[in-house]
Every structure is written in C-alpha cells, then in structure tokens.
Design a protein around this nucleic acid. Sequence first.
DNA 1: GCGACAG
DNA 2: ATCTTGTCGC
Length: 219
Amino acid sequence: MAVQVELAGTLKTGREEISEDPVLVAGMDASYGHSSAYAAIVIMGYPDLTFQSRVEARSPTRFPYVPGFFAFREIPALLEAYNLVGNPPGVLLVHGHGYSHPRRAGIAIHLGAFLGIPSIGVAGRPLPGMEVSEPGESRGACSEIIMEEEVTGVFLRTQEDTRPVYISAGYRTTLTQAIRIALSCCRHSRFPEPIRLADRAAGRMRRRHERNILQGDQV
DNA sequence: GCGACAG
DNA sequence: ATCTTGTCGC
C-alpha cells in the first residue's frame, strides 16, 4: 500500500497529456499456469491497427492474486516481455485498471510509470468501491466511474450489445485521451485489439508450454 | 457475520 | 486468472 500511495503522490495523473497521437500502441496481458506467468505484448500501428510485432516471455509467479495489488503479480512477467520489444510504443494499453483504483495507482499507472511510457487502463470488471450506472446502448456511450465522490474513469460501451469496459487514465494520459484511443482500438471486440491479441497469445503460450512440460520435453 | 473483490 | 459445459455465428 505504501508503494502505491508513494507512486500516486509523485504523479499528476489525468492532468498531464501526451501531445500527439501515438504511432504505435502496445497491448499487454498475461496468463498463469501452475507456477509460471506467461506474458505477451502485441504492438500495432495507430490508428490503422496494422500488426507490427509480438513478444512473449515466461517467468515464475512470485506474488498471489490480491484485488488492489494486481500490479505486483503481473508486472514482473510483463517487464521481461517488454525487454524484447524493438521499437518502443507511444502508448501502453494495459488489461487492468489505471487511475480507477483505491489508491489511484492501478497496474496501468504502475507499469507506465515504471517504463516511462504513457499508458491506459482497460478492465472488464469493477473493483470494490466503484459506483457506475449503465451507459447508453450504442458504441461509444459511457457513464462515469465514481470512487469516493471522485470521477476516476468511465464505463465505456465499446460495441453494441456488449458489456461495457472500465476505462481510466494511466501514466501521462488524460481520461479523454484514454477513452478516444481505447475506443479507436476496438474493432469487432469488447477489448482493444492489441490487448485481445496479447491475451490470446499469452493463453496459447501457456497451454503449449505446460503441455510440453508434462511430456518431459525440454523447452 | 455476510457479501463484494482488476486478473 | 483457470476450469467445465453448452450455444451461437463466422
């Protein structure tokens, strides 16, 4: 908790913005096996979403899943994967909350600050303490996420007939930019395409690797 | 005491 | 996050 409070205190989240749209956006996610975390990062062009590259890494799981402390579990593996990235992306799309967090320091903020790259938080479920109302039914409709009287993000409908996602500012991005960029990256899916591809890649890597381990293969 | 709890 | 089961749609 002290790390998160300290982190949030040194930043001015939401009040600082990137001057230009990114040329490259990165989607980051991880999958978990028996004792390993499998992280994947997919980089795409913005706003055309042309595939650029994908990197993957495996590392031991060192921290349990505890709501509110997701960053400590997921970041180590994501950093190992990031070491393999070639051209640095202009924005990180992180699968998890950013400013919408009990201490305003969700994984998107933590990861972005650590790497010094603007980031955006995109989550599929709420964290305790969030108050939201159902947004309109059309793509792009959104309602505020309120925590302790403060607007920390938005509940955004990225596709019709689909459950909205939780969007919040990350490191050096405003909520307005987060909404626009995240929505621009959603093609025919609920989540931004880079995150979706990273999610699939991480899952594939996990299944392939753990299947080979059971066979006693050397991987 | 019970429910709620990013992934 | 993972697992299992079933259904719909490309």
